[in-house]
Design a protein around this nucleic acid. Structure first.
Lengths: 234, 234
DNA sequence: TTTGTCAATATGTTCTACATAAGAACTATT
DNA sequence: AATAGTTCTTATGTAGAACATATTGACAAA
């Protein structure tokens, strides 16, 4: 067997540090004890002693959980379990500049999937007030054809759709995906010279929301996004 | 003005630690320098000196980035930029037991949205081989009506759908959502006694994939998921 | 009842020291 | 000449002590 393939046949041993271990231990501990947000955690020194590691190691582990928003710390008061924020830690890594091409394409498609799947939740939750606000957004974008403005309205319109879904997590999630989307589209524009536009406009989509059903809206959305769907290939 | 509302009127000041600052600084640094995976980072002591903080603080920040999979560290060799893995850090927080009800519901809906939006990508990528494998999964689940088995086949079937999408990120993402989905459904079952099933079966969906178009499949999927859609309310 | 003071204390930060693994350069072996 | 063994160096991993700082709680003063 060739030497070259060795690294593919044998898995590397991951060098786990104490901080890694303590981190998972703390996770288990938090779960097992069924802590609720606001509950106080043991002190750093107590944890260090109980786990038989230095306070430094405990602090590294706690620092990680802090970054993820799982715990909060205040002087004297100690550490308390926080309302966990899933997307908090996620948002930090979502940088188009440090992601590889394949992942960028994946995330691009992920947003298309979201957009197409949004219809049913949308129809279940949207209100007349929402539709009026959406109309205002649509009205503002007339006659604006320059690229930077187009992007701005694009974001405003689709962002509003997500907000209408009444799903905060979903909304924040698509917000995170936005930079990726913009990046991929702009890269595309660099090559092809011009950003393409689907036949179905935002106003059309608004009318579909008013008078049509989920299926109509989905068809409209598919048409609206059709230039982007061209990126989805085998 | 009542005291009660004070905390809502005045925003809390967030206590930022040095580790927080260093973390973002390192992020900016990595971006600005346009590091590529495999590139070596400055040594801990150099960073500490450059940022004028103790090595401990630098280590806490590095520890965070390490957790997110942005960097890797080896003794003597130093720290190197790793192939960034977006979902790596994400997966850790995705625990039904530590998430609040609203977020759980949001994530539940998010999965429904994904499932409904999947069709187009699916039709663009699926192969005959995929369909054959999907059929094998469907064949295995005949006559299995007990709950634990049902869940297992449910996962196998829908998991295969995501795999067929050819989108690794999407696949891993739905995998992360699975525990949440199971949890919500099982909680539902506790209350209502019985897990409901849609009229459209997995076999029906398979046939739709073979003979129908994206719209047909979406309609089928909507019907298949209809019991779950009942959870989506205003 | 409110305000000011002060001691106690848990986290935040720094510093020093040592352990350990991995690379580098060199030597010895066949 | 290529491989294996040796030693030295070095950057991360871990430990421990010390001090800074903010917050809490108790008590005193207005």
């Amino acid at each position: 067997m060739a030497i070259r393939s060795l690294s593919k046949d044998i898995a590397k041993i991951a060098p786990t540090t104490m901080a890694d271990v303590v981190e998972t231990r703390l996770r288990e501990y938090l779960k097992k004890k069924a802590f609720k947000p606001g509950d106080a955690l043991p002190k750093e020194l107590e944890l260090a002693e109980a786990l038989d590691v230095s306070r430094n190691v405990v602090r590294e582990a706690l620092s990680r959980l802090k970054m993820l928003g799982m715990i909060e710390s205040k002087k004297k008061r100690g550490m308390v379990l926080a309302e966990p924020d899933i997307l908090g830690g996620f948002e930090r890594v979502m940088d188009p500049l440090i992601l590889d091409q394949k992942t960028l394409q994946d995330l691009f498609e992920l947003r298309l999937v979201l957009e197409m799947g949004l219809a049913d939740v949308l129809y279940a939750r949207m209100t007349d007030k929402d539709l009026k606000e959406l109309e205002q957004i649509v009205n503002k974008e007339v006659n604006q054809v320059q690229l930077p403005f187009k992007v701005k309205f694009e974001i405003a319109f689709h962002g509003k759709l997500y907000r209408m879904s009444g799903n905060d997590t979903l909304m924040r999630f698509q917000n995170m995906l936005l930079p990726v989307f913009e990046y991929v589209v702009s890269e595309e524009a660099k090559l092809n010279g011009e950003a393409k536009v689907g036949k179905v406009t935002h106003r059309d989509l608004l009318e579909l929301l008013r008078k049509g059903g989920p299926e109509d809206f989905r068809q409209g959305m598919k048409e609206h996004l059709s230039p982007h769907f061209e990126r989805v290939r085998r």
